[in-house]
Design a protein around this nucleic acid. Structure first.
Lengths: 270, 270
DNA sequence: CCCAGATTTTTGTCTATACATAATTGCAAG
DNA sequence: CTTGCAATTATGTATAGACAAAAATCTGGG
């Protein structure tokens, strides 16, 4: 019988998940199940015990079990369907979470000196290609700015950005002396959608000069466009030297992530 | 009074969020609040109405409001503290979610022809540098493989990978004829931690040959190491031509994401 | 054997209530 | 004006019960 099979699967066959102290009951249930999934004891496709069995096993009400399973479902670890029950989800497609470093914050946190040089700043009308990328009408007036991010005297990145003045009119009179545009925008305007493209390019003469690398050196390019619902807000293009510093992310499939900026030319974990 | 102020803030001052049909009550509450936050009407730091007021406003029980707010809290949109109430969270740090493309799946989905060439495959003992990166002891035996991913005759990526045979002994006798190693591993072994490093490098002679690009061409490099709890599983280094295809991701701060592989040499949204 | 409709199982949502716990606020003593 | 304790308030967690909705399963007719 399905119920019997499910119930037996609750017996601890693995060493026993280290009991988290001070956790609520629904958290405990969640942890137990997460452990069974992550250890491989309950593989993808495995049908978990029904709520009623878990409820009997933990001696609690259905709402408590429901909350635990609901959270796991929201995390994407399991898939729940009425009448069909809950099954362990197929391993998430290989994806990485990657922090776009806020240089100012990062530098302050590690006691380093941050500086940004605004090398260009002007109002301009967008061309056809930009219009296509952003969804704006050709000729729309935007703020264009080119900035260099410098931490402890080292050029970390070169940034080219356009800002939709219709969406963020305050940007017109702002000098961005205290704060790089990205940080300024983030504190002011909420966004609902972002699109990223990552690529590598050989530095042309201008980029090489501004980023302080050799001509033709491989550079990492990160392009980021942001919308507030359907209204385009900003497009940023960040260029990083390909060697030296790199974008890095550490994360787990359960949704928690920790980040940093890897330093040096070596590959070692910092 | 705080309560009165909070209650008045519930009056719809913005056009009114488009009523989602068929949604549950807690979903409706969640959407309403999310809309108020995303539109900027409730800025970061804004103290939201207390559960009791929301409960009165929507004419429902506290548990329903609680579920909605709990979900928003889990999403990171609000921060809740006992007695202190709930406030709108500071905008999330700028981060991107980026899919590591599963070429086989992607190709099949779009009706293209996928092929992978295994160019090298051998058992070897790791050197000191690799040991440091992975946490294994120097001299540990691993499977080394170099593979090329080809979609519709175009070389999309070149992959170098090592697999810890102690953690995945089945890999020793597997030929990987049907399936690239990454896919094979993903289907078999759950992982709990992953670390990514993204960089750009100029192709050396061998990489240029295998990736079919010119020497010194900028290439995108993605390095990914995976652990199962503390046990190292695998390290993959993926090289993509810098021009042409790129890694891309589209996502929203509320946690939903959609992905694809951008094609062509142009920048336009596909 | 196949199909349609009735049945049953399992999750989804909600209510009303209760007690626990964290943190602010207010009050009173020093 | 500060310090410490008490009261208050808002959230956190849990219970028990109820009905709804989706979907697998069973059943009978053709």
């Amino acid at each position: 019988m399905a119920s019997a099979a499910a119930k037996s699967s609750l017996k601890k066959t693995t060493p026993a998940p280290p009991a988290p102290r001070g956790a609520s009951l629904n958290q405990t249930i969640r942890n137990d199940i997460e452990h069974k999934i992550m250890s491989g004891e309950w593989p993808p496709g495995f049908r978990l015990p029904v709520e009623h069995d878990l409820m009997a096993h933990y001696g609690c009400s259905r709402m408590t079990v429901n909350k635990a399973l609901g959270a796991l479902s929201a995390q994407g670890l399991i898939i729940r369907r009425r009448r069909a029950g809950s099954v362990v989800a197929a391993p998430s497609a290989d994806r990485a979470v990657l922090q776009i470093v806020d240089f100012a914050a990062e530098a302050q946190r590690s006691g380093k000196l941050y500086r940004h040089d605004m090398m260009e700043r002007r109002m301009e009308e967008i061309d056809a290609a930009t219009a296509r990328r952003t969804g704006l009408k050709p000729g729309t007036r935007v703020l264009y700015a080119a900035t260099r991010h410098v931490v402890d005297g080292v050029i970390e990145a070169y940034e080219e950005r356009i800002v939709n003045l219709a969406a963020v009119p305050q940007a017109r009179r702002e000098s961005f002396a205290d704060m790089p545009i990205g940080t300024w925008l983030l504190q002011r305007v909420p966004w609902s959608d972002a699109e990223h493209i990552i690529g590598a390019i050989n530095a042309d003469a201008r980029l090489a000069r501004r980023l302080g690398v050799e001509r033709h050196a491989a550079c990492l390019m990160l392009e980021r466009r942001t919308w507030q619902n359907t209204v385009f807000l900003t497009e940023a293009r960040l260029y990083y030297p390909g060697t030296g510093h790199r974008l890095v992310g550490r994360f787990s499939p359960t949704g928690n992530a920790a980040f940093g900026l890897a330093g040096g030319t070596e590959n070692g974990r910092s």
